[in-house]
Nucleic acid binder design. Structure first.
Lengths: 340, 340
DNA sequence: TATAGTAAAGAAACCGGTTTCGATTCTGTT
DNA sequence: AACAGAATCGAAACCGGTTTCTTTACTATA
């Protein structure tokens, strides 16, 4: 038989209510009985049933984690997974556990909202590089506290965290500029992605800010943020005529694919073309040449997401957003000498 | 107000019990009322409270996921995370969701068993490259169905999946042998790790099986399975005298670290020393030279783990283990020509 | 000593489901 | 028409907690 509150009450010779009060720090219980009961709880290792507690209080201490968007983003995604890791740690410290919703087909059109109700989650975090689907929109607009990671949630009980994408792009352009590169290209994603669009817009703005001209021929797009798209995009760039001197890829995986394509064509990095990625995933350190990239502070993104969600759950904030400053990580893929 | 079974019952003009019976496929309910109620459920999008259901049935449709061991293994681990991904997908298809236990300090000595009871999980999966801790042992011996990934669980309601580590090693040795390498080294981990020990034992056995001699000077160990340990282990190997002609690293990350050390010393791969890793993580494709490695069928490991756990939960099996066959992935790090 | 006020504890309703068991209605048979 | 048996449905107890409200015991004050 499972240990329950009634058994604890009997062992201590008190009522069930008294035990409950002790576990929830009510004040109307004498110090003496409190100690006695706590000792029994300690000895027996009693832990109250989460279901019963949730049923009674409508609070579950559970945070729902949603990988939104069509496939693609899951535990194997090198960027999100690090944010998630930090988020999980921080949420654990705050006393919450994480529950992951399966988004398999058999779910009625990925109805995240009703799953949140089903599990009585206190809040949830939505991870996605893609534009909003309607199921997410519904959740965003609901009364369930939500935090988006790289996803702009606007609901009254929602917020989001992301890196400063404009600044990402401008740091890249500045780096290129100072090294003497003037003919700049871009590899983005056509996936319905706010992130890609923001980075591209910022990139264009920064180029113009430095008084350079934007050549749209050097702007190509893969269908997502993964390696094969980068390969394929660079193939097109190579095929389409004279190359830019430097290219910014909106993700490291895109850059990795681009490297593969360049190598196949016997082009040297950075002598023939310089390259900067984005995300600073592990693999950047192992390529030849090693990949200059933008480091997003994933740990901080996770911690911020956790704290924002906590505040939202406890009505201590009104939502909003946090933007985290990126950092340029200089490695070998842009060379070091001034270019003509 | 939250939609609940009573409201559905009222709307349909039937009793609560009838609604419950319909949702649980009882037979003593007429087709007519069944259709009427189902229609209302459909329209309203009603989804029964998991807490209430769990409280009443003691089944939660939740699977606990535990990252065991001291830190180190978490969402960012390139191997486990892929197994987990496949596991999650399969478990989703089987109708379960995943809950991740925080293993933060504030938990009384990581008492996984009581957390399982707390959440009424139907079963759990334990992921770890390290030897058993007592908290895991307790869970293993309990009546809660458990599956270990790379962790030998022996309890009556437990099972495990792992790759055939002996075969991993023997495939590597065979590869070395056929390419003409005779002087073989090994980089393992001193972490209390069954995996490292199994691979090392299998490696030695295979070397002897080919009639070669084992030189223990060429067997070095890092303190874990990560890149810095590989770097540091290779440093020691280089410092300690004449090098072997080929080295098997018990993980790709160890191999990556070894590559870094070799490059720093101006040693060429594979001309001066050949290298094989293990796991086939993404990064293998991006190193120079690309890394020959052993591919573990992570997807299959995840699927097997899911099905074993499902059977265990439904009393359709007695536990046991599944061993998955590994495959050699030949890339550039061993060269291709026969060595003298 | 009587009384008011406070501290401590418990009874009971409630959360939203499940499940047993008894009641009622519907068949078909003689 | 009477009745057995099956089909259908609902009442109520239960799961393990929380919380309100009442009761009881104790303390302090006049």
């Amino acid at each position: 038989m499972q240990l329950n509150i009634k058994m604890i009450a009997e062992m201590a010779g008190v009522s069930v209510s008294t035990v409950s009060k002790i576990m929830n720090n009510y004040s109307d219980v004498s110090e003496k009985t409190k100690q006695r009961v706590l000792e029994i709880i300690e000895q027996t290792g009693y832990s109250p049933s989460n279901s019963a507690k949730t049923l009674a209080t409508k609070k579950s201490s559970l945070i729902g984690v949603i990988f939104a968007g069509e496939l693609n983003v899951d535990f194997t995604h090198p960027f999100f997974v690090e944010v998630l890791n930090s988020f999980k740690k921080q949420m654990g410290v705050l006393g919450y556990d994480l529950i992951f919703f399966s988004n398999e087909k058999f779910l009625s059109s990925g109805d995240y909202f009703s799953r949140c109700l089903h599990f009585h989650v206190d809040g949830c975090v939505i991870i996605s590089g893609q534009k909003m689907e309607s199921a997410i929109r519904e959740l965003d607009m609901s009364s369930i506290p939500c935090i988006g990671v790289d996803l702009e949630l606007k609901g009254k009980k929602s917020g989001y965290v992301m890196s400063d994408n404009y600044q990402i792009s401008s740091k890249v352009v500045e780096h290129f500029y100072l090294l003497g590169y003037r003919e700049l290209g871009f590899i983005g994603s056509t996936a319905d992605s706010d992130i890609s669009n923001l980075r591209e817009a910022g990139y264009i703005k920064a180029i113009e800010g430095f008084g350079l001209t934007v050549n749209e021929q050097w702007f190509v797009h893969g269908e997502d943020f993964f390696e094969p798209s980068g390969y394929e995009a660079m193939q097109r760039l190579i095929a389409s005529g004279p190359l830019p001197k430097a290219v910014f890829a909106a993700s490291d995986l895109l850059a990795l694919g681009a490297i593969r394509a360049l190598k196949e064509h016997g082009l040297r990095i950075p002598e023939d073309i310089a390259l900067v990625g984005c995300d600073d995933i592990e693999a950047c350190k192992y390529t030849t040449p090693t990949l200059t990239t933008i480091r997003q502070n994933k740990e901080r993104l996770g911690v911020l997401a956790a704290h924002m969600l906590f505040d939202l759950i406890n009505n201590q904030s009104e939502g909003g957003s946090f933007v985290v400053e990126p950092a340029l990580v200089v490695r070998e893929s842009c060379g070091s000498r001034k270019h003509p």
